[in-house]
């Protein structure tokens, strides 16, 4: 059988996975509406593409999780589905992994509907198909 493709982060990727998606569950608090985060997760799960999920960006930032630095390195466009952009940027900075000014979009599940968030996160990247 073909073995799973566990490759290093320099591996080539399919074009449709060029944009990296990170979903934050905000699992340690009840500040993101459960209906929104569940619907967004269901939409992403049904979208048929790879994505990453973290239990809680706050908890990762406090641990200065090395994965945040890897995400912030900016080698690929990044879409973060979490909460207020100001807070998300601050969390990455706190973890010594400031987000690049270009190539990062933050979608807010605290205020936006699941439909709005999904439309934003699954939209074709700017310039795609042109």
């Amino acid at each position: 059988m073909t073995e799973p493709q566990l490759q290093t982060e320099t591996a080539a990727r399919p074009a449709d996975d060029a944009t990296r998606i990170v979903y934050c569950r905000c699992a340690y608090a009840q500040v993101v509406p459960v209906a929104v985060k569940d619907a967004v997760l269901a939409g992403l799960a049904a979208a048929g593409r790879g994505f990453e999920m973290v239990p809680d960006l706050c908890e990762m930032a406090a641990r200065r999780d090395p994965h945040l630095a890897e995400l912030a390195r900016g080698d690929r466009p990044l879409r973060i589905v979490a909460c207020w952009p100001r807070a998300v940027q601050g969390l990455f900075t706190l973890a010594d992994a400031p987000l690049p000014k270009q190539g990062v979009e933050i979608l807010n599940m605290r205020t936006d509907t699941a439909e709005t968030v999904l439309a934003g996160v699954l939209a074709a990247p700017e310039g795609a198909g042109s």
Partner: peptide, 12 residues
């Protein structure tokens, strides 16, 4: 933490 690795690869 969870990664859904479909056709693509998963980072280590």
């Amino acid at each position: 933490a969870v990664t859904r690795a479909g056709a693509g690869a998963a980072d280590l």
